[in-house]
Nucleic acid binder design. Structure first.
Lengths: 314, 314
DNA sequence: AGTCTCCATAAATTTTGATTATTCAAATAA
DNA sequence: TTATTTGAATAATCAAAATTTATGGAGACT
């Protein structure tokens, strides 16, 4: 090994002697014996081919070379201390960054609240939210660019068994109607009623749209028979469309909390159909898990397991 | 020993792995085996209670904590390199400071030339000249404030055996007369002639004055009989006084080179009297000797052993 | 001078780190 | 898929380095 001319221990000893003015006192402070100190300094002097201390009288005094070395020594040891502090902060969640992935829907309506709670508890950990498609989010988790992610859709098969997927909450995809729609008065709607509606939907590429389609199909609905008035690429746009009476839609309840409360959108009750999807936490078990990530998973997520209560509280 | 959480070797390994992206390649570069690298990183991770590398695939990737540590690592290792360079420079006389002591006379007339020669050879070593009394100069050498000194007088007895005193040149204290003085025409002067002269001398506290008095007394002169016209505290002032015809004086030849050459001062030849003093180099043998100091003593000083030739050359 | 401190030195022990050999896991190739 | 290769972890052995105990010597203070 191409050796370094000195060790951190030697620098620590050098600093101690310079501060104490004595080999013996330095040894006491460092909890070693005096010969240990002497030998290390001798090694240091041999390696660097300099004399560091004048051991003339009762006090050990720095030579010119010694003073020069001490300057660097202080700087180096300070950097070491800083490094330790930074690492400690990271370990105690007083620093660092947590990178969270989410799809458009969860990223917009759910994550801000989760992140808010996390930041409230660990204000010194910065959180970065990355909103991507489910597919891309999955890959980012796989290659470590994202610590953890919340998704509502289905992962590609190859990622399914590479990542850890933990369902943690159920998100209802509610059938919503314009408040003044005629069917809004009916207590219960049946599948058959759906064929009478005009739908405003997300564009067919979106994860949420795919999920809705699949769920409806799985429950025996002929989705080809559904009339699609228009396709929009934003939930907010759809909400506005519904509120304007342009049609009905299946929307995640998390996204229409305010509108339901305000009564500007009507949520219908479907007697013979439940459209629900699992919200899942995905992580990469084969990768390093940061403390922040652990804590998020263990302490923050459970508070959102039932989507109703915590959201209402806010 | 209250241990440091890491060693410089570990940091070097960390840096190498980060650069190479592989434990094995890092091991090759550092000329050690792969297990050595693995072990050290494991120790590091254990000490700091963090995971530094993700060893998932064929590449070793830094975790967040690893990246954080690497930043400090780079800074620390850079400081180490700088320290080494600074020390090397000091050893190769490409840096550092040489502190030289001298009395008024040598400091004024001799040292500038010596220092000039030294600086010509080692331009990167800065030289500091401290002009003090012989006594104070001696003490400064004793306690290390001055690396070496040139003195012309006698050290206090207690310092004599504490310091190394090396005579290296003879400085003649020449009897000088105004050029137009009547005795300037005589080829040789005798002791008796001195009693006829009016003297302009240094004040009685000065080292050079004491030396002259002692030398004259030792050679049998009755110094009380010498007529002292005035006492001045500066050699330059005395030279001016002599040139102005106010009187004679004993002056170090090194201080009147120019005036002799210009013929504005006359140097008399004393047939039965030689007034010479030893110029001595003093150092502190019990103290660390800097490289610059060594070189000055070994290479520069000998060139001034005969005061005539090197001075003339300039 | 005598005593006390402090540093240097020597020998022995302990600790640490490195190496060889092997196993394990993942990625590449057939 | 299986086989091969590459890289990292592990275990046991071995070498080297640091620490300790014990001791000697040189200044400094009384």
């Amino acid at each position: 090994m191409p050796e370094l001319p000195f060790t951190l221990d030697q620098l620590r000893i050098l600093k101690a002697i310079a501060a104490q003015g004595s080999f013996k006192k330095a040894a006491d402070i460092l909890y070693v014996t005096q010969p240990a100190v002497s030998l290390q300094i001798q090694n240091l002097e041999k390696q660097l081919e300099i004399t560091i201390f004048d051991r003339g009288g009762r006090k050990a005094l720095l030579t010119e070379a010694g003073r020069l070395l001490l300057e660097y020594c202080e700087r180096i040891l300070n950097q070491c201390d800083e490094a330790c502090k930074a690492i400690e902060d990271l370990n105690s969640l007083k620093g660092g960054t947590l990178v969270i992935g989410a799809s458009q829907t969860t990223g917009t309506y759910l994550m801000p609240r989760m992140i808010g709670l996390f930041r409230q508890k660990y204000p010194e950990v910065s959180v970065q939210l990355q909103v991507h498609s489910t597919r891309r989010t999955g890959w980012s988790v796989a290659n470590g660019q994202i610590d953890l992610a919340i998704i509502g859709g289905q992962l590609p098969a190859d990622l399914e068994n590479l990542l850890q997927v933990i369902p943690y909450a159920t998100d209802e995809l509610a059938l919503v109607l314009p408040s003044k729609h005629q069917l809004s008065n009916k207590k219960e709607l049946l599948k058959e009623d759906l064929y009478k509606l005009n739908f405003v939907t997300l564009d067919s590429q979106s994860t949420t749209r795919k999920v809705v389609d699949k769920l409806l199909q799985d429950s025996g609905l002929e989705i080809q028979r559904l009339k699609i008035e228009m396709e929009l690429n934003s939930l907010e746009a759809i909400k506005n469309a519904v509120q304007s009476g342009l049609g009905a839609s299946f929307l995640p309840v998390v996204s229409i909390e305010r509108e339901l409360a305000a009564g500007t959108i009507h949520k219908a009750f479907l007697a013979d159909l439940e459209v629900k999807r699992e919200l899942k936490l995905i992580t990469n078990p084969s990768r390093y898990t940061s403390r922040a990530s652990e804590v998020f998973k263990k302490n923050i997520l459970p508070q959102f397991a039932s989507l109703e209560s915590p959201l209402r509280k806010i």
